[in-house]
Design a protein around this nucleic acid. Structure first.
Length: 164
DNA sequence: CGCAAGATTATT
DNA sequence: ATAATCTTGCGA
């Protein structure tokens, strides 16, 4: 499994490297198909755009930790903190090809299928036998596009998907 | 303390 | 295109 320093880089640099690779969360495994990158005070769409708040605080912390938040009162979303400490950013996992459930397209559906909730918030994606990512393949071809579901759109092409 | 907006999804 | 549903963060 990859270690913490791997996540200590800009989100948009890491995202394509993780596409097609193996993610493990407790009993579940799958291959990452779709990731969005988020930054900090230069990224209006990011939760960490302005100040540190109770919710986004972890985005300002050490890389490689799990950031979970609830959206629209119904769905949890799964993120991994990026950038060195004090520089906020995250990777937003949107879709996975899961060995058990098949393709799960949608961040809310992923958390529902894998039972991810706030208990995962603040846990590690490194040095953790239960949660982590293993790079066991050559880099895969991918496409980029605009991030979806955001209104403060800055037109950045920070959505990364495995090419069909 | 009130209120609008939100990194979504299923349905029309 | 819109409802469902509730937390968060902002302003007063």
């Amino acid at each position: 499994m990859i270690h913490q320093s791997f996540f200590s880089a800009p989100s948009e640099h890491i995202a394509p490297l993780l596409l097609g690779q193996l993610i493990t969360m407790n009993q579940y495994t799958g291959r990452i198909l779709d990731i969005e990158a988020y930054g900090g005070d230069d990224d209006p769409a990011s939760h960490a755009f302005k100040r540190k708040t109770p919710r986004n605080e972890i985005m300002f912390g050490s890389p490689g930790y799990i950031y979970i938040y609830m959206i629209y009162g119904m769905y949890y979303c799964f993120n991994i903190v990026t950038h060195p400490i004090d520089i906020p950013g995250s990777l937003f996992i949107r879709a996975i090809d899961c060995s058990k459930h098949g393709i799960i397209n949608g961040p809310g559906k992923l958390c529902r299928a894998w039972g991810i909730d706030l208990r995962y918030h603040g846990q590690k994606m490194f040095d953790n036998p239960l949660c982590g990512i293993t790079i066991d393949r050559q880099p895969v071809a991918y496409t980029t596009s605009k991030r979806i579901g955001i209104t403060k759109d800055d037109h950045r092409q920070w959505r990364f998907k495995v090419a069909i």
